[in-house]
Each structure stands twice: as structure tokens, then as C-alpha cells.
């Protein structure tokens, strides 16, 4: 098990009103599994993704994070039972200090956002390398510059952008930008890829291409993926679809038999794909495309 989320609660304060967004979500994700979080707008799926990614903190037991005692009373029934916990690869993310959390975001997870979030001043290559620049100090980065640049080039080549290395984001289409964002998310070879509506800002055709690309990558590298979407058609490509309604999991089927193992064989391009043992961090063992994005840890 790579990720275990239990009794996850999150409450936001809007003015004087406390709004519970997650009301005790529990979820498990296996290594190499592709899980889609499906839900309507406001169901809490992006919040769940941010919490899993260490960008935000869940409510503490007995009191929502950043909310007063009065707020707790107002948010009746929100904070109950066991404390919120996110355990990643045996480590309790919710108990991590700020520095450990920064390290977790840099090393263990990779984000793909709906709006790409590329830095407009940087070239495609620099945007991808930014992840490594943040992760490594000057000496480490300089020492490994050639290796890191080669990895970035390979990743950009694998997403079909080897001819766009020196372009700026403004010169790219939406699909190309998202591919750059995917390459950036993969550069540090995170164990968990978090995609927040990766096709939400793209037309259907381009969105389909991006989804195929994510499937290819996942098939080739065996990345575990947690993907937020409101589109059931997109969600259907995952191994498992977890449905959220009003901050609660209403449908979380057990992983299909062989779905996790199928990641490495390229069989999870769709909900009924065949299964094979994953080879995390390594190239495709068969059945996948020849391209093999290789991250650097």
C-alpha cells in the first residue's frame, strides 16, 4: 500500500461561517494503481488532492486547522472520531514538520494542474528543470546538471516536445503546456503523481491525447496516480474510480483484480485493461510504447 488516507477532514472558513469540505474521507491506493477521484464541483476532490500532496493540512483532531473553538462548535459534527491521517509509504504526512513536508512535496509527489502553472518567464526546458532546481542545492544541481538536463530532454522527448525546448509557455498550445507540466512533475521521479483535472482546460481531442499520454507514462514507469476529474469518461480510464459527494466517499470499489499489476504491462489504458506486475521507476517491460520517460531521483 502506497497511500492510506483515513478519516480525513478539512474545514474552510468563509467569513464567519465554517464550511466542512471533507467529512472523514478514507481511501487506500496501492503502488502502481491509478485512482480517479470523481465528483462534482465542490465535492472536495481537489482539497483531498492538496492534502495528499502536502500543500495543505487537514483539520486537527478536535479542531479544524486554523479554526477557533467557536468555529468548531459552529461546524457541528465535522470533527469527530479518529484524527485525520495520511500515511504515505509508511510515513505519516499529517505529522510531518514544515521542512519534511517541503521535502515530501519535492521528492515523493508530482503535481499536474488544470491550468498547467508554468512560469511564463522560463523556457520549456527551464520550467521542467525548475523541479530539480528546487530539489537540489547549487552544488548538487551544478554537479548533476548534465544528467538532469539529459533527463529533462528525455522527458520532453517522450511527451513529444523535443523541438520546443527553448520556447516559452506563451508560444505553446494548451496541450503542449500540459505536456510540459507533466514532464516537470515527473523529473524528480515521484512515487505518486497527483493530477488535478489535467484535461479540464483542454478540448476533448487534446484532453484525450493527454490522458493517453498519462496512461502511457504510467504503463512505462509504473507511477501511482491519483487523478481528480469531474468527467466520468476521463475517470473511466483509471483502474479504480472513487466518487466523492459533499466531502464523503460514496463509492470506492476495491481495486479490480490485476488492475495494479496491470500498470506495468500497459493494460490499464482503460478500465478493463489486462494486468501485469509493475516495475516502478523502470522502463516498460512490454506492451507499452517505446518511449520511456526516466526520472532522476
Amino acid at each position: 500500500m502506497l497511500l492510506e488516507v483515513s478519516n480525513l477532514r478539512k474545514t474552510y472558513r468563509l467569513g464567519r461561517v465554517d464550511v466542512p469540505v471533507l467529512r472523514g474521507v478514507s481511501l487506500s491506493v496501492h503502488k502502481g494503481e491509478w485512482v480517479a477521484l470523481l465528483g462534482a464541483s465542490g465535492s472536495g476532490k481537489s482539497t483531498l488532492l492538496h492534502l495528499v500532496g502536502g500543500l495543505d493540512r487537514p483539520d486537527r483532531a478536535g479542531r479544524p486547522a486554523g479554526i477557533t473553538a467557536q468555529g468548531v462548535a459552529a461546524a457541528q459534527g465535522v470533527v469527530k472520531g479518529e484524527p485525520s491521517r495520511i500515511v504515505f509509504d509508511g510515513r505519516d504526512v499529517t505529522a510531518m514538520g514544515q521542512r519534511a513536508l517541503d521535502k515530501y512535496r519535492s521528492n515523493d509527489v508530482g503535481f499536474v494542474f488544470q491550468f498547467y502553472h508554468l512560469l511564463p518567464e522560463l523556457t520549456v526546458m527551464q520550467n521542467v528543470l525548475l523541479a530539480a532546481m528546487v530539489r537540489h542545492g547549487r552544488v548538487a544541481y551544478t554537479t548533476r546538471r548534465g544528467e538532469l538536463q539529459a533527463s529533462a530532454r528525455r522527458l520532453l522527448d517522450s511527451v513529444g516536445l523535443s523541438h520546443r525546448l527553448q520556447h516559452r509557455p506563451v508560444e505553446l498550445s494548451g496541450g503542449e503546456r500540459q505536456r510540459v507540466a507533466i514532464a516537470r512533475a515527473l523529473l524528480n521521479s515521484p512515487a505518486l503523481l497527483l493530477a488535478d483535472e489535467p484535461t479540464g482546460n483542454l478540448d476533448k481531442t487534446t484532453g484525450g491525447t493527454i490522458m493517453s499520454m498519462l496512461a502511457d507514462i504510467r504503463r512505462a514507469t509504473g507511477h501511482t496516480m491519483l487523478m481528480v476529474t469531474h468527467d466520468p469518461e476521463v475517470a473511466a480510464r483509471a483502474d479504480r474510480v472513487v466518487t466523492l459527494v459533499d466531502g464523503r466517499v460514496v463509492s470506492s470499489p476495491t481495486p479490480r483484480a490485476g488492475a495494479v499489476a496491470g500498470a506495468a504491462t500497459g493494460g490499464s489504458g482503460g478500465p478493463t485493461g489486462p494486468a501485469a506486475p509493475p516495475t516502478p521507476g523502470g522502463p516498460a517491460s512490454g506492451g507499452g510504447p517505446a518511449r520511456s520517460p526516466i526520472g532522476v531521483r
Binding site: D102, L130, V134, G137
Partner: peptide, 25 residues
């Protein structure tokens, strides 16, 4: 102050890159 390795990282490269880019653009 850097960001990784369980301790401060001296002079991360992204500082220099972004400073230069923000200055010139």
C-alpha cells in the same frame, strides 16, 4: 536557505534563475 535534504540548501539555483528572469523581463 534551501529546501531539501533535511537541512538548508545554500544558494538554490532557482533563486539565481528567477532573479535574472524577473530582472530582465
Amino acid at each position: 536557505v534551501g529546501d531539501q535534504g533535511g537541512g538548508p540548501i545554500p544558494f538554490p539555483v532557482y533563486h539565481a534563475l528567477l532573479t535574472r528572469k524577473y530582472l530582465t523581463s
